[in-house]
């Protein structure tokens, strides 16, 4: 069990980074989809909503094909590296964060925007105020994004390769140990995975619920 700590740390590192990148993509994109008026908006929203249900193995397949030595991005030599897992997980989490961000902002009273503008808000101040107002569902979006990647195994296995000491994360290690019949190790890893998932979500929930009546 000496390798448990590096596996756990890598899992956390990869999934937190993928979630943060998804947030950087999803928050502005979701905001644009919720507040903007442009041709193709509904179509884009449908695509994002479909993307929320993207099977990780399908993402894994396309990322693996792209990063494969002979693939279009093969020269980057990223296949079977933690970076490849981050890319795949970002593709999985970004639609989740984007879709839930759009839904969170669309739930706000549309006249609130008029009121904020009427109070002298610039466009940036208006958006920041709406984000603050929707902070509870936005944090839920962040939690859902993190949950979708910390628990996925297919893409991590396909693009990371489950290489010991390099790309082995908790989920791929659980698959490996179960395959070997090492159920005790698999259970220990599962408990670890559940614990860190709980701790991260607990921290986010505390932030989310702070100041609530």
């Amino acid at each position: 069990m000496t390798d448990l700590l590096p596996i756990t740390l890598l899992s956390l590192q990869v999934s937190i980074l993928a979630t943060l990148i998804s947030l950087l993509i999803g928050l502005p994109l979701g905001t644009m989809l919720a507040l903007g008026k442009f041709p193709g908006r509904s179509f884009l929203l449908s695509l994002i909503n479909t993307g929320m249900a993207l099977p990780p193995v399908v993402v894994g397949l396309f990322v693996a094909m792209s990063l494969w030595r002979s693939g279009p991005l093969g020269d980057l030599r990223l296949i079977y590296t933690p970076a490849a897992i981050i890319i795949a997980q970002t593709i999985i989490a970004a639609p989740v964060v984007t879709g839930l961000t759009a839904a969170a902002l669309q739930q706000l009273n549309p006249r609130l925007r008029l009121q904020l503008y009427g109070l002298g808000a610039s466009r940036v101040q208006m958006v920041l105020s709406l984000w603050r107002e929707a902070r509870l569902p936005l944090l839920a979006a962040l939690m859902a994004g993190f949950g979708s990647v910390i628990s996925e195994v297919g893409a991590s296995m396909m693009v990371g390769g489950n290489i010991k000491g390099q790309t082995r994360v908790l989920t791929t290690a659980i698959v490996l140990e179960t395959g070997k019949g090492e159920f005790e190790r698999a259970i220990a890893l599962s408990i670890f995975l559940l614990t860190i998932t709980f701790l991260v979500n607990w921290a986010l929930t505390v932030i989310q619920q702070r100041g609530r009546p």
């Binding site: 009273n109 006249r111 609130l112 009121q115 009427g118 109070l119 002298g120 105020s129 603050r132 107002e133």
Partner: peptide
């Protein structure tokens, strides 16, 4: 427009107060 809006104030039918 921004400068103009910063010289006026408006009150709507619904108070539309923020969660603060």
């Amino acid at each position: 427009t921004l400068e103009y809006r910063r010289r006026i104030a408006l009150v709507l039918q619904e108070p539309l107060l923020l969660d603060a």
